[in-house]
Amino acid sequence: RERTTFTRAQLDVLEALFAKTRYPDIFMREEVALKINLPESRVQVWFKNRRAKCRQ
């Protein structure tokens, strides 16, 4: 699998959701994945990595 490159628009949507909740449930992830045209698994990993970035 190639490394996913997120567009600015995708990142804006993800960051906005992250500001609301750091742990979105499966339904929220599915919804945002459809909206920004990414698989739900990529959204899940993005959140995992974003939380890790926050902890540093």
Rank of each mutant, 00 (worst) to 15 (best):
L34Y: 04
L17I: 09
E40L: 07
R22C: 07
W46V: 01
I36G: 06
R8S: 12
F6E: 09
V43T: 01
A19C: 07
I36W: 04
P39E: 15
T21L: 04
R42Q: 15
A52E: 12
D25R: 04
Y23A: 03
R8N: 15
A16N: 08
A9T: 15
F6S: 02
F27V: 13
V13Y: 04
R8G: 08
E40R: 03
P39H: 08
F18C: 00
Y23W: 11
M28D: 07
E40F: 04
R29M: 14
K35G: 08
L14Y: 00
E31F: 05
T4I: 15
K35H: 07
F47T: 00
R29E: 01
N49Q: 14
R3N: 15
D25T: 11
E15I: 03
S41L: 06
C54I: 12
K35R: 11
R1T: 11
E15H: 03
V45G: 12
E15T: 02
R55S: 13
T4E: 13
N37A: 11
T4V: 08
N37C: 11
E31H: 07
F6Y: 13
I36H: 06
R42E: 15
E30K: 09
N49L: 10
D12T: 10
I26G: 09
F27Y: 14
S41W: 08
A33G: 12
F27K: 15
R51C: 03
L34S: 12
S41R: 11
D25S: 10
I36F: 09
A16P: 05
K48R: 10
K35D: 05
R1A: 15
K35P: 00
V32D: 00
T21N: 13
L38K: 08
R22M: 13
E31S: 10
R22A: 14
P39M: 04
L38H: 06
R29P: 00
A16F: 02
A9Y: 10
L11S: 06
T21K: 07
V45R: 08
R55F: 11
D12Q: 05
E30Y: 06
M28I: 04
T5C: 12
E31V: 05
V13E: 10
K53I: 08
F6L: 13
N37Q: 09
A33T: 03
R29F: 05
F18S: 02
A33W: 00
A19W: 06
V32M: 04
K20W: 02
A9M: 09
C54W: 06
K20R: 13
K53G: 12
L11H: 08
F6G: 03
L11K: 09
R51V: 06
A19I: 07
I26M: 05
N37T: 05
R42S: 12
K53F: 12
K53E: 15
F47G: 00
D12N: 09
V43I: 13
F47I: 15
E2S: 07
A33H: 02
P39C: 04
C54H: 10
A9R: 11
A52D: 14
Q10D: 04
Q10V: 00
R50E: 15
L34T: 13
T5N: 14
C54Y: 12
L11Q: 15
F47Q: 00
V32S: 01
T5I: 15
S41Q: 14
P24C: 00
L11F: 04
N49T: 11
V45K: 08
T7Q: 15
E31A: 11
Q56T: 05
F18H: 04
K48N: 10
D25Q: 06
V13F: 04
K35V: 05
W46P: 03
R22Y: 04
A33P: 00
D25H: 04
E2I: 05
R29N: 03
K35S: 09
A33V: 00
K48T: 13
L17E: 05
M28E: 07
T21A: 11
Q44G: 13
Q10K: 03
L11T: 09
T4C: 08
I26F: 15
I36D: 01
E30S: 10
V43H: 02
K53M: 10
L38T: 11
A19H: 14
V13K: 07
T7F: 03
Q10L: 02
Q10A: 00
A16S: 09
P24Y: 02
T5D: 11
C54K: 07
R29L: 13
D25M: 01
A19F: 06
L17A: 12
M28Y: 03
K48A: 13
D25Y: 01
R42N: 11
Q10R: 01
F27I: 15
L17V: 11
R3E: 14
I26A: 10
P24G: 01
Y23G: 02
A19S: 12
W46R: 02
Q56W: 06
T7N: 14
P39L: 04
A19L: 11
K35E: 04
R50T: 07
V45Q: 14
L38N: 03
F47C: 03
N37R: 09
K48Y: 06
F6C: 07
R22G: 05
R42P: 01
T5Y: 07
E2D: 09
T4A: 06
V13W: 04
E30F: 06
R55N: 10
A33C: 05
R8K: 14
A9H: 10
Q44W: 07
R50C: 05
M28P: 08
W46H: 00
K35M: 12
E40W: 03
T21M: 03
E30P: 00
I26H: 14
R50I: 09
A19K: 08
R51I: 09
P24S: 02
R29Y: 07
V32Y: 00
T4H: 08
R51L: 05
R42I: 10
L34M: 12
E2T: 06
L34H: 11
R55D: 15
Q10I: 05
N49H: 08
R3L: 12
R55C: 14
R29H: 02
V13I: 07
V32P: 02
V43K: 04
V45E: 12
P39Y: 02
F18Y: 09
Y23E: 14
M28Q: 14
